[in-house]
């Protein structure tokens, strides 16, 4: 184990940037699991789907992956609305969201992964963009653009969502349905419709999440599994449904992973996220800030 302060500084900076990116892939789960109580463990698979969409747009049409993902997000929104409709009719309405609902999403995760394997094979895919490669330098600190741009894109998306939730009627209705669906019905708003919109939004974020993922690292279909632990660890630690908490938890995890990778070797970093999650569940299941 080699230690130096410049290595430590670099690890912390890249951990922060990585954390910003993690927040972007987690925000969908913060909405679906945190607010709507839908345990969408297939979310990472949809993120990988988003990566492949960005990959196709980039390699065939030469579009910037992040721009492409924004253009594609309405399609993901529709996909999310469709999935919620099936989920609602088959499980939520029957009051059977537990075992079978979980198995449903697990099945979706698996189907998405196998379909991607069948279409694209198991090779790693990557994208081309001007910001992959160069770095910004501030004194001794180096900011690689391929981490900085996804981090900023993700934080911008989260900021936009936060504004939407706190400023618009629909957004406030989503926050309300998270607290008390029955009361929302008394206010003459249809909780099912609101939940459908919220869930569809959560899937739409997977489009952008996927694009920033493929900017940061090459993607193959089963990569999503590594993100299941990360994403749920962050969502739980962030206090389920709190966007600010999600960002902070994501950055804490990013720094921890980056330090582990720098000082112990990258083969240990998947265990960090999951160990973090297990510890979080055992010690403080309400998250770092509680709810």
């Amino acid at each position: 184990m080699y230690f130096s302060f410049s290595l430590l500084g670099d690890a912390i900076v890249s951990g922060l940037l990585l954390g910003g990116f993690y927040a972007g892939v987690t925000i969908g789960v913060s909405i679906s699991f945190g607010m709507l109580d839908i345990v969408n463990i297939a979310h990472p698979a949809f993120i990988i789907l988003g990566s492949y969409c960005a990959y196709v747009a980039n390699s065939v049409f030469g579009v910037d992956p992040i721009v492409a993902s924004l253009m594609l997000s309405p399609l993901f929104y529709l996909l999310g609305a469709g999935i919620y409709q099936v989920y609602h009719v088959s499980f939520e309405r029957r009051g059977d969201g537990g075992l079978r609902g979980l198995a449903f999403f697990f099945g979706l995760l698996f189907i998405t992964e196998v379909l991607l394997v069948l279409v694209f094979g198991v090779d790693y895919r990557l994208v081309r963009a001007v910001y992959i490669g160069p770095s910004l330098h501030f004194g001794a600190i180096e900011l690689p653009l391929r981490l900085l741009v996804p981090c900023l894109a993700s934080l911008a998306m989260i900021g936009g969502l936060q504004l939407f939730l706190s400023r618009t009627f629909l957004g406030r209705a989503i926050l309300a349905v998270a607290q008390d669906a029955g009361a929302l019905r008394l206010m003459a708003a249809d909780p099912v419709r609101i939940k459908r919109i919220a869930f569809a939004l959560s899937i739409a974020t997977a489009s952008v999440g996927g694009a920033i993922l493929i900017v940061i690292q090459p993607v193959e279909p089963s990569l999503g599994r590594e993100y299941i632990g990360r994403v749920f660890a962050i969502a739980v630690l962030g206090g389920l449904g709190s966007f600010g908490g999600t960002v902070v938890a994501a950055m804490v995890l990013g720094i921890m992973e980056s330090l582990t990778a720098t000082f112990y070797g990258p083969s240990w970093s998947p265990a960090v996220a999951f160990g973090f999650l297990l510890l979080a569940l055992a010690v403080k299941p309400a998250g770092m800030f509680g709810r």
Partner: peptide, 23 residues
């Protein structure tokens, strides 16, 4: 560690456990 929590937490934790064990 996890059974005192809601069922979904247990499920997620088992998935996490498999990856930790693999690592």
């Amino acid at each position: 560690l996890t059974l005192r929590l809601r069922g979904a937490f247990f499920s997620i934790a088992t998935l996490a456990m498999a990856v930790v064990a693999q690592t």
